[in-house]
Design a protein around this nucleic acid. Structure first.
Lengths: 316, 316
DNA sequence: ATCCTTATGCTTGTGTTGAGCATAGATACG
DNA sequence: CGTATCTATGCTCAACACAAGCATAAGGAT
C-alpha cells in the first residue's frame, strides 16, 4: 500500500481529508483617468470575496462570471495569486482556505455596495510619480519611523539586519526603489507596528493609508506586486486599455501601475520596436498639443511569443 | 449590510462557506550527479500528497515538517505553486482543493515507499542538453505527430493557429526553444492526444515518457516550469548545491534544470560578476584536469537585493 | 506672432551579452 | 620525459539594449 500522505491514512487505505471552508477573494483592478483603482466592498474595508460554490465549473470561471455580473464589464485577464490558510481561524475549528485572484478589466462600472478605490489610498507610499528624489512620503514619514524601529533592535547584528532590510525595501541610502516590492514593504511596516492592522501598532506612529479588514490589505499588496512584476515581461497592460489609445495614454497607465514616471521617448521606442501595437490611422487631439496617433494592441503577439512585455525604462 | 460575496449570504450576514476537502501536493526536487530528480510515491505513479491537518501551524510549515521527516533532509526552499479545484471530483459531492508546493533540497535520502525519479523520465523531451540542433526526440517523435494534429484542424484558420502554437511551444521553424514552457508543452501534447493521460490518446501515437495518476504529471510540469523561470532571476539554485562546490558543478546543476547546455565562460562571468559566490580557498581535483576552485554561496545576497538571479547565457 | 504644450524622431554614450581565443594546471600514455 | 588530452580560468571583441538628452513637428492660448 502506498504511504504518501502528510498525515495518517485510514484502515481502508483511503486518505482522510479534513474538510475546510473555501473562499475566493478577488483583486480586480482597472485604470481610470490615470488612477489605478481596485474593486472593494463594505466602504473599502473588504476586497470582494465569497464562498467557492459547487456550481462553479472552475474557480476561474466562477470569478469571471461573478465579476462580470457585478460590474457589467468583461474581465480581460484572470490569474491566481495565492492561497492562504488563515491560522487565526485554524484553531477555532472552522479553518478557512482563501484562494485569491487577480483580475484586470478596462472599464469601471458601478454597482451599489461596490466601489472602485484608488490603490494609493491604501498604499500612499507606493505612488512616487510626482515625488522628487529626496522628498515625498517615504522620506518624510516612513524613513524616520523605520529609523526608530532599526534602533530598537537587540544588539548590533539585529540592528544591522533591520537597517539593511529597510534600505532594500524602501530604496534608502544609495539603493534604488524597486516598484515590485509592494508586499515586502507592507510586511515590513506591519512588523514595525506602523500599520493599523498590526498588533504592535501604536496609533500615533501609524503611517498614512486606509486599513482593511483581516488580511485583505495584505492580499491587495500581493496583487499589486504581481501586477507590477508582470507588466515587465508580459503584455497585460493592454487588458486595462480601451480598444484604441494613444501612446501617451498607454504610458500614463503603466506609470499609474508602476507608481513611477517613465522616460517618454524610450517608452515609445520600446513599445513600437517590439511591435506590440499597430496604428489605427486615426488621431486624438484633445490634449492641447500636437495630436497623437491612435494605436490598438496587436493581439497576435500573445500567440506569437510567450514572452513579450512592457519593460520599464527608468525614471522621468 | 455588505453585499460582497460570490454567492449568497445567510440571514445573520455571515457568509455560508461550502466545506471542501483540502490536500497538499509536493513537488520536491534535488539534483544528484547532474540528474534532476523529484520525490515520488507509489512506484512513481504519484507525487507525495496528503491532507491539510489542523495541527499544521501553516501550510508551509506542514510541508517542511513532513518532507524533513520523510527524507531526513532539510528543505532549503518552499514556494507555493498553484491551487487546483479538481472539476472531476466537484460533481460527485466531495470536492477537493489541491494546494501544490515546490520544495528544494540538496541531498537525497531514501525512505521506503518513496523514490527519487529523474525529471526527464516523465518529460524526456525537456532534456536537450545532449541534442544537436535538428536532432533529438522533438524532431524525431514529436514534430511529425504534431504535424498530423495540425493537419486535422477544421479550416485554414484553425490549422494556422495550431501550427503557430506547435512552433512556439517546441521551437519549431525558426523559433527558439524556451525552456520555461514546460507546462504549455505538456498541455499541447495532452490536447493532441499524445500523452497516455489524455482522453484522446491512441496508444500507438503516444510520446515517450512515464505517466502519473490523475493530474500529477501536470502539477509536476508546473513545478519544473516555475523552477526554470525562477533560476533566471532569483538565486534558488544554491538550495540544490552542497555547502561548497566548483563552478563546473554549479553549471552542471543549472544545465540539469534548464535542460540546455550553457556557454561555460559566460556562465562563470555571470556568477562571479554578480558576487553570488566567494572562494573557500580549497580546490577540487577529481576530474582529471586542472583542479577547480571551490566556492560557497554568499547567503548575504538574499538580504542585500531582492532581485538577483542566475541568468542563462545562451547555448553551448 | 510668440509661447506653451504634447507628440515624435534621432543621436550618443554606456553597459550587457554572445562567442571565441588563449593560457594554466592537472592526468594518461607512449 | 614528452606529448596528447582534459578541465579550469582569464581576456577580448563585436553586437545589441538601454538611459539620457537634443531636436523638430503640430496643435492651442494669449
Amino acid at each position: 500500500m502506498q504511504n504518501c500522505t502528510f498525515g495518517q491514512i485510514g484502515h481502508d487505505g483511503r486518505v482522510t481529508v479534513e474538510r475546510v471552508g473555501a473562499e475566493l477573494v478577488a483583486v480586480v483592478t482597472a485604470v481610470a483617468a490615470g488612477r489605478p483603482v481596485v474593486l472593494t466592498a463594505d466602504e473599502g474595508r473588504h476586497l470582494p470575496f465569497g464562498p467557492l460554490r459547487t456550481e462553479h465549473h472552475s474557480m476561474q470561471a466562477g470569478l469571471h462570471a461573478w465579476v462580470e455580473h457585478q460590474t457589467g464589464h468583461r474581465l480581460g485577464y484572470v490569474e491566481q495569486l495565492y492561497t492562504f490558510a488563515d491560522p487565526a481561524r485554524a484553531t477555532t475549528g472552522g479553518r478557512v482556505v482563501s484562494i485569491s485572484y487577480l483580475g484586470l478589466t478596462n472599464a469601471v462600472g458601478d454597482r451599489p455596495g461596490k466601489a472602485w478605490r484608488d490603490w494609493y489610498s491604501f498604499f500612499p507610499w507606493e505612488d512616487q510619480r510626482h515625488d522628487r528624489p529626496g522628498e515625498g512620503l517615504v522620506r518624510e514619514a516612513i524613513e524616520p519611523r523605520l529609523g526608530a524601529w532599526v534602533g530598537q533592535g537587540d544588539g548590533t547584528a539585529e540592528r544591522e539586519a533591520r537597517r539593511l532590510r529597510a534600505d532594500v525595501c524602501f530604496g534608502l541610502g544609495e539603493r534604488a526603489w524597486s516598484p515590485e516590492l509592494v508586499l515586502q514593504r507592507y510586511e515590513l511596516l506591519y512588523e514595525a507596528g506602523l500599520i493599523p492592522e498590526s498588533p504592535m501598532a501604536s496609533a500615533d506612529l501609524v503611517v498614512p493609508g486606509e486599513a482593511m479588514a483581516g488580511d485583505h490589505r495584505r492580499i491587495l499588496s500581493t496583487g499589486l506586486a504581481r501586477l507590477r512584476a508582470k507588466i515587465q515581461y508580459h503584455p497585460v497592460v493592454f487588458e486595462l486599455m480601451p480598444e484604441s489609445f494613444t501612446l501617451g495614454q498607454l504610458q500614463a497607465t503603466v506609470e499609474a501601475l508602476a507608481g513611477q514616471a517613465l522616460h517618454k521617448q524610450n517608452f515609445r521606442r520600446l513599445v513600437t520596436q517590439q511591435e506590440l501595437v499597430e496604428p489605427t490611422g486615426e488621431t486624438h487631439g484633445e490634449t492641447g498639443g500636437r495630436p497623437a496617433r491612435m494605436y490598438r494592441f496587436r493581439r497576435a503577439v500573445l500567440d506569437e511569443r510567450q514572452v513579450a512585455g512592457t519593460k520599464l525604462p527608468r525614471t522621468r
